[in-house]
Structure formats: C-alpha cells, structure tokens
Amino acid sequence: MKTLIMIAAAAENDALGKDNDLLWHLPDDFKRFKRLTTGHKIIMGRKTFESFPKPLPNRTHIIITRDKNYTTDFKDCIIVHTIEQAIDLVANEIAFIIGGGEIYALAEKFADKIELTRVHANFDEADTFFPEIDESLWMLSVQEFHPADERHKYAFTYLTYTRRNPSFNV
C-alpha cells in the first residue's frame, strides 16, 4: 500500500525559505528528516533538488520539472514532469514529498500524512511557503515541542497530521 507523506519545516507564517535556502538551522530537525526519509523515495521540485550540493544518500530522488530536456548524471535520480508521474513511481511504498512550495501545493491532495516541523518564528522575507493546513481535511495526531537552546535559535514543534477521511484521497 502506498503512503505519501509531506515533510517540511515551516515558520508560524508558513514560510519555508528564501532564494532556495532555509531561513533557520535546526540540527535536531535535520536528524529527524534523515531518520524518516532514509531508505525511501523522495519527491521534489527541480529547484529543491538543485539546492543540495549532491543527492541525499540512501534515498531515490524523484525530481519534477517542466523542462523536458532536464537531465542529471547522478544515479538514484529519476526525472518526471508531473506530480502524477512521480506518484505513479511510488505505487506500493512509503514516499516523502520534500518540497518546494509549489510541489507541496500540487501534492497535498494525494498525501496521506504531513510531518511538519513548526518553527516558532515568522520570516517576512521568505519567498516560498507551505500550504495552509485545512483542519477540516487534516487531524493533528502527534505533537512534540522543543524549546530553543544553544544549538537551536528557535523553538519548534514536530506536528504529525493524518488525513481525516482517507477515502477522499485521490
């Protein structure tokens, strides 16, 4: 059975980043992202893929781009041109949507779960945003607060949302 999970870190104002980069550094969130996504397929837009110095280890990257001539020489990377093509490649497994903002917006109707790290700050300078979570569609099932500390400038909360009525999932 397919399980499609959107995973992101977003500020209180749903900011994700600016100029294809994050606006904060949360080492524990990076560790959680790695722990959850390792060994799975990860679906992302081209700009998100290009923001990495190299592909993330132990994950198959499915890259969505409108550019029909786009290629990469990295192994474990698959190029597709629609969200539907990406989802077709994860028919019977767990996969993660990892961004960016446009891809999250396209993928939400297909997702079964959201793993969101809510960064307790606002970033007005952001140029990319996570879609607003419609609580009539999504139910908060787990939350775990982490205060700011010497390694984390901002407090944050891990939030897990599950779809309220999975039968409506496309």
Rank of each mutant, 00 (worst) to 15 (best):
M1S: 12
K2I: 03
T3F: 02
L4F: 03
I5W: 01
I5L: 11
M6D: 12
M6N: 08
A8R: 09
A11R: 07
E12L: 15
D19W: 01
N20Q: 12
D21T: 08
H25I: 03
L26Y: 02
L26P: 07
P27G: 10
D29T: 09
D29C: 10
F30Y: 10
F30T: 07
R32E: 08
F33K: 05
K34S: 11
T37G: 00
T37K: 00
G39L: 07
H40L: 02
I43W: 01
G45N: 08
G45A: 10
K47M: 05
K47V: 04
E50W: 00
P53K: 04
P53E: 06
K54I: 03
P55I: 05
R59F: 02
I62S: 06
D67V: 03
Y70W: 12
T72D: 08
D73T: 09
F74T: 09
F74Q: 11
F74G: 09
C77H: 02
I78F: 06
I78W: 05
V80L: 06
I83F: 08
Q85M: 09
I87L: 04
L89Y: 01
A91K: 00
A91S: 12
A91W: 00
N92V: 03
N92I: 01
E93A: 06
E93L: 03
A95I: 10
A95H: 04
F96I: 12
I98P: 08
G100V: 08
E102R: 15
Y104K: 07
Y104S: 08
L106D: 12
E108M: 15
E108F: 04
E108P: 03
K109R: 14
K109Y: 01
K109W: 00
F110M: 01
A111W: 04
A111G: 11
E115L: 14
T117H: 10
T117S: 15
H120G: 08
A121E: 14
D124N: 15
A126W: 02
T128Y: 00
F129Y: 15
F130D: 09
P131V: 07
P131R: 06
E132T: 13
I133R: 13
E135G: 05
S141I: 15
S141L: 06
V142F: 08
V142I: 11
Q143M: 13
Q143H: 14
H146P: 14
P147W: 04
D149S: 11
D149H: 09
E150G: 13
Y154N: 03
A155K: 06
A155Q: 05
L159N: 14
L159F: 06
L159E: 15
L159S: 04
T162L: 15
R163G: 09
R164N: 15
N165H: 13
S167K: 15
S167M: 14
F168N: 15
